[in-house]
Amino acid sequence: MIENHPQNLSKLQSDFKDLVLEEKNKLATHKPEFLNDSETVDWKKRLGIYQYAVLERQIDSLKDDFEITEKVMGKEPFRRMVIACLKKYPSTYHSLAELSQNVPQFLTEFEETKTQPWLYELAELEWRLIRASLSENFIVNNLSELQNEENQGKDLTFLLNPSIDLFFSKYSVQNFFDDPKAPRAESASYLLIFEKDRSGVYEVLDKNEWTLLKELRTDIPLSKLNQVFASLNVDEAKLGEYFMKWSNAGFISAFK
């Protein structure tokens, strides 16, 4: 776009964007020159249609994705936070679905919420659930090939179902899903997130199982996983039990 960059169009788009993002009560009294007049509808009203659509569409999308965070914070504080977030981190995404990823980080920066770390964790959990709900979830049923002779004695690497995510919460924020007024005290939880019937769901795991799945997620070969398991100082027979459970639940999608 170096050659023939359209100067007038450039200025118009930049000015129009500023107008659309301007707060209504701060708009100038006089109509900007680049807008045509209309005999029937005032320019501020016509511009307001864009202002409303741009802001509310983004707020609605964030409200949908952070339903529990909104309940815990309250409607008005949540709206203030979201508006401030959009101002600090305007969307650079093609899809509205991606916009939500900015919210957890912003909660640690926003004056009204930065001293409430559980809000960051809760928003992060909600974002990861959204992401899981829209992720691929495929199961490759070739685990029976594990029995084949050619695979015996090989150092296998197991691949996890792509919708799987592992989340650690210092505040057990999953409790807010049942009760937005749940205690804000420190209490650790190890969560497994995955896709089920087009929703993101979570399951609370014990720390050992969670740690192993986390290692498995890094494409670690079985021999090294055994070492991790040994370091956890748990009965080795448990590993087979875990594998059986993971493969039955479709968490392991393949091996190589």
């Binding site: 359209p6 007038n8 169009l9 930049s14 964007k17 864009y50």
Partner: peptide, 28 residues
């Protein structure tokens, strides 16, 4: 239409000015 500028996406469909400059730009 255009949906944003200066790397900001506004998630709405804004009209263009129907000028010769915009026409050449869009066609290209």
């Amino acid at each position: 239409c255009w949906t944003g500028v200066k790397n900001e996406k506004l998630h709405d469909l804004f009209p263009l000015p129907y000028s010769n400059e915009a026409l050449s730009w869009v066609v290209e």
